[in-house]
């Protein structure tokens, strides 16, 4: 009996230890996968196609060099511009191939609390995961926003510029980005310490 209980204990311990090691290995793998996903996701998030509309001031930025939007365009109270100079004064629901003016549904600026300009990628991630800054969104809602919102996904189909030259796209494809966001959030949306 004593021997059997010892054996059982050893077995259990072994099982526990083995499974412990097993978990550890799996967890390291998941962690790596999540971090890789984070990196992929942030390559898009930090790209000018996203960044230009997450400025820190009251003016959007534009162009490949992220200059302040010409003509002193203003964010206004709701991020949709001001009285006679709304985003929709020039930007419609889709890219305009005649004029080269970009467009997507509800084209507007991210709120002030979501200003990313000048932040590091971990700071940016903290800002968009924090319900206090992201408009009270849960991780699931953030995932939906980032993977389904037409304005976010416009970054992958940015059309041509005023000069007729295609706008630069983020370095990652839309599909890879969506997958990365999903993996990262599914794994707890951990933000690395950088």
């Amino acid at each position: 009996m004593k021997f059997r209980s010892i054996l059982l204990m050893i077995t259990l311990l072994t099982v526990v230890m083995v499974s412990y090691n097993f978990n550890e290995v799996a967890e390291v793998q998941l962690e790596e996968q999540s971090m890789e996903a984070f990196g992929t996701m942030m390559e898009v998030v930090m790209h000018k196609r996203c960044m230009n509309c997450h400025p820190k001031g009251d003016q959007p930025r534009q162009g490949e060099d992220s200059h302040l939007h010409y003509f002193g365009v203003q964010r206004g109270e709701d991020g949709h511009g001001i009285a006679a100079l709304k985003c929709e004064t020039c930007h419609q629901k889709e890219n305009n191939l005649n004029s080269g003016v970009p467009g997507a549904p509800h084209w507007h600026l991210a709120p002030r609390s979501m200003a990313w300009e000048g932040l590091s990628r971990t700071e940016v991630a903290s800002v968009f995961m924090n319900p206090e800054t992201n408009g009270g969104k849960s991780p699931e809602e953030i995932e939906k926003h980032m993977t389904e919102d037409d304005l976010v996904l416009w970054a992958f189909e940015p059309g041509i510029g005023l000069d007729g030259v295609p706008r630069e796209k983020p370095p990652v494809s839309k599909e890879e980005f969506i997958e990365a966001v999903k993996i990262w959030i599914a794994n707890g949306a951990k933000i690395p310490s950088e």
């Binding site: 010409y70 003509f71 006679a84 100079l85 709304k86 929709e88 004064t89 020039c90 419609q92 629901k93 889709e94 305009n96 005649n98 004029s99 080269g100 003016v101 005023l162």
Partner: peptide, 26 residues
């Protein structure tokens, strides 16, 4: 023709819109 000068400004449902960059379907 690029929504930069405003000479083509009209109102669409009361909002100022630069019509050179507004597809007629909208």
């Amino acid at each position: 023709g690029k929504a930069a000068c405003g000479a083509c400004t009209v109102h669409v449902d009361g909002e100022a819109v630069r019509s050179c960059s507004f597809a007629v379907k909208f």
